[in-house]
Simulated assay, not measured.
Amino acid sequence: MDDKMTISHPAVGIQLSAALSALGHNAAQIRQSMTSEENTLTLSSGFIPEKQVWVGAYPHALIEEVPDFLAHVDSRNLRFALTALSSIEAEVRAYTAQFDVKRLAVILGTSTSGIADNEILLKQYFVNQVHEEISHYKQEMGSLAKGLQKYLGWEGPAYTISTACSSSAKAMAAGQRLINADLADAVLVGGVDTLCRLTLNGFDSLESLSNDLCQPCGAQRDGINIGEAAGLFLLSKETAPVMLMAAGESMDAWHISAPHPEGKGAAEAMQKALSIAGITSDEIAYLNMHGTATPQNDAMEIKAVQTVFQSYEVPISSTKHKTGHCLGAAGAIEAAICQQVLIDQSWLPLHQAGPIDPELDQANYVLHAELQQPIKYVMSNSFAFGGSNISLIFGTTLK
């Protein structure tokens, strides 16, 4: 196929959405957190032995119990998902009542599933040699989507995507494809990831955790803060105030945990998204960076942005200094931020306020939250281990 050929996939509407994270649980809290310099992360000593770490913890209570028919997959991850769903459940059920349940799908992303709920039991088994019955159902990746499908009573496709940090963004892309392939009339997409010892100790062993609040593209950046989030979106063909215009994906497979140093896969994902959306780079009014605050990731992403946007100084920021890196749910919570930016038309998410790396300071970082003029399109990047890259483009139909 000609590389210059424009590929177009019809946009799908975001009919309903819910987002829970360190930012809070509603639109006003997202806006307040992303337009001020207040810290939303928490210093915790409960995850890594003899060490305190900053985490993006959800500050509110989750539902206290799940229905009996979901008891075998009960986990904090599932409760996080059901808590997010509860805020839009009545509207979801009312909207989807017009469709055959066999044409209602669930596609979600996660990287931890319910493994946190088994950590204590596994420690007792391996360290204390205590005989324990440990159910693996709750930590299976598929349990998240299947659990929500069963809860809703839907009978269409239901599966979980687990591609590390790109998981939930890929779930949104998969939902768009399912609708455009006429395999579903409505799809619940997004992602959920919860804080657990496994991931925090894993990133600590990689020496990837920041010793302080993370500083995306900062001169003194030294790693990430882990966060947790739940983001859910109901997609359909019907026009909505915010549309998922396109998803561009690539797989550079440069290294198991490091991105391509020149950002080739990242640039390819962004360029594909623009081509599929049928717009030019200078029509993107804001770019939500993957922006992890690790030295290699930030450096390659700025190179990729410069490759794709050339002389156009697109406003950019990373929001991970406020949410933490929410792993499999990162794409979903950042999509929710982009959605709210398009709805409000009055602000952009602030980039971290510390000194910028002199080698990366040519970019147009959002240092003032006020939006001076209406915007139509925004882009959100998610780049994962192994080179699993995706860029999403959202657009508004609001006048």
Rank of each mutant, 00 (worst) to 15 (best):
S210K: 12
A384Q: 11
G191H: 09
P259I: 09
S318D: 06
K4P: 03
M251K: 10
K170W: 03
A253H: 07
L78S: 01
T163M: 11
G13A: 04
S33I: 02
V92N: 12
A363D: 01
G109M: 04
I107C: 06
G291A: 13
M5S: 06
G191L: 09
V66R: 07
D100F: 00
W154C: 00
A247G: 05
G109F: 01
P49T: 06
L195E: 00
Y286E: 04
S167K: 10
A11F: 09
A229H: 12
P216A: 02
I284S: 02
L232F: 10
K123H: 09
A258N: 13
M243H: 01
P59V: 14
A253W: 08
I316S: 06
L43Y: 14
M270L: 00
D204Y: 10
E334G: 03
D252Y: 04
V242A: 03
N225Q: 01
L206H: 08
R76F: 07
E334K: 00
I302Y: 07
A336N: 05
K264T: 15
S208K: 06
I226P: 00
M1A: 14
G46Y: 12
F394Y: 12
K272W: 13
D3G: 11
A71W: 03
A335V: 01
F233I: 13
A384H: 11
E301F: 06
E334T: 04
A81P: 05
S382G: 00
A277H: 06
S275F: 05
D193V: 01
